[in-house]
Design a protein around this nucleic acid. Structure first.
Length: 505
RNA sequence: GGCGCAUUGGUGUAGUUGGUUAACACGCUGCCCUCUCAAGGCAGAGAUCACGGGUUCGAGUCCCGUAUGCGCUACCA
């Protein structure tokens, strides 16, 4: 039975790369009929927050990735981690290192590592030369009992190598000489990452570890631990990283909210669309299809189809039109216009409600009208936000006029000041009032007035919706109804006054 | 510094055991449609498959090297 897990550390929002890892784990569990578990790696108490844990769970829920069994908090297992380390000490597989803790500066660690490595090779320092590595058990116990502080390190053999077959990256091997005696327990007794993951994964019965490629080389250390603990080694599948447009690391510090999953929810993405997009970052379906429902994703998913090169997440900072990957935007629009409208309705409802545009009648007497309206306007929208933004005029009489639209369709021709109210008069007398009759009325009136019907159509569009673009105008007349159409056509005075004012200058 | 991984048009990807004009999607350009804008239809631009060697009748596909990027190398996760 396959058991996989998603193990984020709750130190911020849910990163889209992490969200993709969660997705792939979830898909694999579904595909194989296994279990998908969630473990919060909150051992770093300074940086971990409850709020972050909440947002991770919310994010997974939004994506539709429900987890099985009880949520595990890694911090709750610290005693087990310590016990395991102590057991390894007792067995002689690990040792107490009484070397005083060195000062460490986060900002310069990388530099320190390189410097130390250079010094090592230059001075021929033996990497296994820790003076406490072979301290007698008695002396070690004695010093510990005397209260001397120590870290616990794993004894890594000088000779030999570890190897494993990564499902994505293929056969991997690493000489023991490349691996330091890693610290398992800090001198304050705090268990460290590599120990904790391994113990927890054993404890949770994880069979397949699917995670980011940044853990690929550390996997060897973890295998050493599995072996020391005499536990079966799980299968590993590492995922290619998701990079920023400059092929650098995609991080909140540098790139802001584009990397946060909740941004997509808050900016009107459909979970099915974003999930679909995410699935295509580092994976592709066997026959190359791209629009895949959750069921199809599950059906077609396989670890073997994951590829090895990192994917670039494309977006342009400081450009609101390209704030995120264009393909993601396109895919969201594609879902909005092609999904069954009944499934879209609840999402539009939530969006309208959040903007105080929702009316209970839409669920009741005006249910049909609501569905018809959404159907009419959804084809031009990219996100759910558009329903309350560009689409506001369909749900409220209080909407903004787009300045460019007013210039283009109203101020352009002074005759419109008389034409539009006159059109309103004709429409008011049109019975019955629907798309066909409204069209007939408008075209007849245009002919009588000797103007192009396009002039009236475009002018009407801006008067009725505030926009320069939108659905077929006659459908809009129909949807808005006779009363509102007539009212809005007659309400144009301010625009023409503004025009006159401009003319005076 | 060491080790590891990667490298196909701007981006995401396809390219079976090496075999002819390197495929698809997004984006971009033009045309059609048309009351606008999308959608849709049609057409098109854009890749010496990172570079250099080698193996072969023939290499994006195999081998070696180089470069670049990324990752790991911590008493961070």
């Amino acid at each position: 039975m396959v058991r996989v897990r998603f193990a984020p550390s709750p130190t911020g929002y849910l990163h889209i790369g992490a969200a993709r890892s969660a997705l792939f784990n979830w898909l694999y569990a579904q595909k194989t009929g296994g279990k998908f578990l969630l473990r919060i790696e909150d051992t770093d108490l300074q940086r971990s927050t409850e709020e972050s844990t909440r947002s991770i769970i919310e994010g997974l829920e939004w994506l539709g990735l429900s987890f099985d069994e009880e949520l595990v908090f890694q911090s709750a297992n610290a005693d087990k981690h310590r016990a395991a380390a102590n057991k390894l000490v007792a067995e002689g597989k690990a040792y107490r290192d009484f070397t005083p803790k060195a000062e460490r500066d986060d900002a310069t660690v990388k530099q320190g590592i390189a410097d130390r490595a250079r010094a090592h090779s230059a001075e021929g320092v033996d990497p296994r030369g820790n003076p406490f590595r072979d301290l007698s058990k008695e002396e070690s116990d004695q010093r510990a009992a005397a209260g001397e502080s120590f870290a616990v390190r794993l004894k890594v053999a000088a000779e030999g190598k570890t190897q494993f077959d990564d499902i994505v990256y293929g056969p991997q091997e690493r000489a023991h000489s490349e691996i330091e005696d890693l610290v398992l327990l800090r001198s304050d007794g705090h268990p460290l990452y590599n120990l904790s993951v391994v113990i927890d994964d054993i404890e949770m019965g994880i069979t397949h570890v699917i995670r980011g490629q940044d853990h690929l080389t550390n996997t060897h250390k973890q295998i050493l631990l599995y072996q020391a603990l005499a536990a079966p080694v799980p299968h590993f599948a590492h995922l290619p990283l998701i990079l920023a447009p400059n092929k650098g690391k995609l991080s909140k510090r540098k790139h802001g909210e584009v990397v946060s999953l909740t941004t997509y929810r808050d900016r009107g993405f459909l979970p099915e669309a974003f999930r679909n997009f995410l699935a295509l970052l580092g994976w592709s379906a066997p026959e190359g299809r791209e629009m895949l429902s959750m069921d199809e994703l599950v059906q077609q998913f396989s670890l073997e189809q994951i590829h090895r090169s990192p994917a670039v997440f494309n977006f342009q900072e400081n450009d609101p039109r390209h704030w995120t990957d264009e393909k993601a935007l396109w895919m969201n629009a594609e879902y909005i216009r092609t999904m069954p409208v009944e499934k879209l309705l609840p999402m539009v409802k939530a969006e309208l409600r959040a903007n105080k545009l929702w009316r209970e009648e839409y669920d009741d007497d005006d249910r049909e009208w609501f569905a018809k309206t959404v159907e009419l306007i959804r084809h031009r929208f990219f996100t759910l936000k558009d329903f309350s933004g560009q689409g506001r005029a369909y749900f409220s009489d209080d909407f903004d006029f787009d300045e460019a639209a007013v210039n283009k369709n109203l101020r352009k021709d002074p005759a419109l000041k008389q034409l539009l109210p006159a059109l309103a008069n004709h429409l008011e007398e049109t019975e019955p009032f629907n798309a066909e009759t409204a069209e007939a009325t408008l075209r007849r009136f245009a002919e009588e007035a000797g103007v192009k019907s396009g002039l009236l159509i475009n002018g009407s569009r801006t008067m009725l919706t505030g926009q320069a673009v939108g659905p077929s105008m006659f459908e809009v007349f129909d949807i808005l109804g006779q009363k509102r159409s007539v009212e809005r056509l007659r309400s144009g005075v301010p625009w023409f006054d503004a025009m006159n004012a401009l003319g005076d200058v």
